[in-house]
Nucleic acid binder design. Structure first.
Ligand SMILES: [Mn+2]
Ligand SMILES: [Mn+2]
Ligand SMILES: [Zn+2]
Ligand SMILES: [Zn+2]
Lengths: 155, 155
DNA sequence: TTTATTATTTAGAATCATTCTTAACTGGTA
DNA sequence: TACCAGTTAAGAATGATTCTAAATAATAAA
């Protein structure tokens, strides 16, 4: 069976880049922390465990490359750092985020939900949409009273 | 008639802050450039024309204060700088943006458009929405072929 | 008014994330 | 072997933002 890494390797090769050991280590960290939203520094610290000789600049360069190839998305939640988020395989658009103002948790919404809105924007504003960023700020299910009923699993 | 500045002054007072000359100069610049998306540095350079003695740190402090009071919104389009955007008076939510990948133009959408999506999110993810950030990346009407038909005026 | 208190400002230093520069190293190729 | 393009590590440089300290202005108490 072809692994996720194999497919990423192919994507790199298709753009005539190599999956060097440093790049592979970086990708592995991202795969191992798919749920998280790691900063470059976070990635650096984690990747050093499995590839101690790696430099921070290499991590930055690798993340930049992966962003270019749309394997990861670079996001900014307003604290001073960029965060890197593995894109769902085959996803055309970037997924959405729920940022809790209370506890700081960042949850993900994998469903698109924006089809209708995008249709309106494309038509009314005559804007050809390539991608989007959507973040909701509010109070997560863990932090407000109306019962800790965890949301259903994403579609 | 009560001006926009007067109302902002009241908002400051309501939170027991004063509209100092430096703050007033900064607000004036923001009002004079409502269409734009100025960085702190941009604001600083402009405000220096009408209040030459002002310091960059004061501009940062003022923008931070205005952000706290939700008079302006701080946004980040992925270049390394934060930009400050005057919030529409009385708007509950922040407006949306269209960023052109071709020419870099940033257009605004003042309409909400997200009512339905937010209803779904509140219910399905049990998340109490306070605000949002929505940005579309793509090709603006000026940059693509299908005729330079400017979008209709915002609602 | 005088004095004490507090809020605000300025200038510049400090910090922190990110990018750049340079020299070294790699694997492939003639 | 000698050469070349791609990649890397280390550290310097940059640029945005925040912090610090001292000065100033506004406010409140005496
Ligand atoms: Mn995510
Ligand atoms: Mn705007
Ligand atoms: Zn929470
Ligand atoms: Zn354009």
């Amino acid at each position: 069976m072809e692994t996720r890494i194999d497919r990423i390797k192919k994507q790199l090769h298709a753009a005539s880049y190599k999956l060097t050991p440093q790049r592979e280590a970086t990708v592995r960290i991202l795969l191992d922390h798919e749920e998280d939203h790691l900063s470059a520094e976070d990635v650096y610290l984690l990747v050093k465990d499995i590839a101690p000789e790696i430099g921070l600049a290499t991590v930055y360069r690798t993340l930049e490359l992966l962003t270019e190839l749309k394997i990861v998305d670079k996001i900014n939640f307003g604290d001073g750092v960029s965060r890197y988020d593995l894109r769902q395989e085959g996803a055309a658009h970037f997924h959405h985020h729920l940022v809790c103002l209370e506890c700081g948790a960042v949850d993900e919404i994998q469903e698109d939900l924006l089809e209708d809105v995008e249709a309106v924007v494309e038509k009314r504003w005559n804007f050809q949409i390539k991608d989007h960023r959507l973040t909701f700020h509010g109070i997560c299910w863990r932090c407000h009273d109306s019962g800790p009923n965890k949301p259903e699993k994403d579609a």
